[in-house]
Amino acid sequence: MFHWLEKHPFFFAVGVFVVIAYAGLIEIVPNFAQASRPVIGTKPYTTLQLAGRDVYIKNSCNSCHSQLIRPFKAETDRYGHYSLSGEYAYDRPFLWGSERTGPDLHRVGNYRTTQWHENHMMDPAKIVEGSIMPAYPWLFKNKVDLDTAYAEQLTDWEFFGVPYNKPVPTKDGGTITVKMGKSVAESHALALAEAKKVVANMHNQDVKDAVARGEIPEIVALIAYLNSLK
């Protein structure tokens, strides 16, 4: 049979394709729906947080940082509760990473603060002796791309049914509604209001001034995102 296939390239190719194709189906399909369901307490990202997530991706923070706490005591001691599938329901793309050159960040919002991130991102080695993380001074100057983040949010909402402007359950039994602007202008206004809360805890005068003018530097969005990781 194989000899025959080797003389008939079309059937050979079909054979190869069949052999390689179905493993994927069996790995991915059975659990697909289950894995899409959020756990209680998981909220969609706000426009500002999404913009910060895009900053995270743009700078490939995921090439050094994981966002996946594995169920080992050593990891839960260091980073907090092990990660649950449903917590990632709104993560498009997922950001688990495959290297831990730096620590895991899946719950960094629990044990680091706005101010700490501000200092750290400006010059990590100054805050953590011996750190090999690069400094990110340009984040304090570049303005974040809110429009793209808003378009991303709209895509999540239109194509994937992410529950914006709808109550979602919280851990304490209540609900919370994450707002999404009805227009570009409204999304900017919402993001700016959130940014103001972030800069209230920051030092950098240029950043504060920028936000006062209605512009949002990348660092503000990034911190909003990092703080949301809990």
């Binding site: 001691d77 629990n110 044990y111 680091r112 603060t113 706005t114 101010q115 700490w116 805890n201």
Partner: peptide, 9 residues
């Protein structure tokens, strides 16, 4: 000085 996070873990 700023904010110290909860370290209840």
């Amino acid at each position: 000085i700023g904010k110290m996070p909860v370290m209840d873990r």
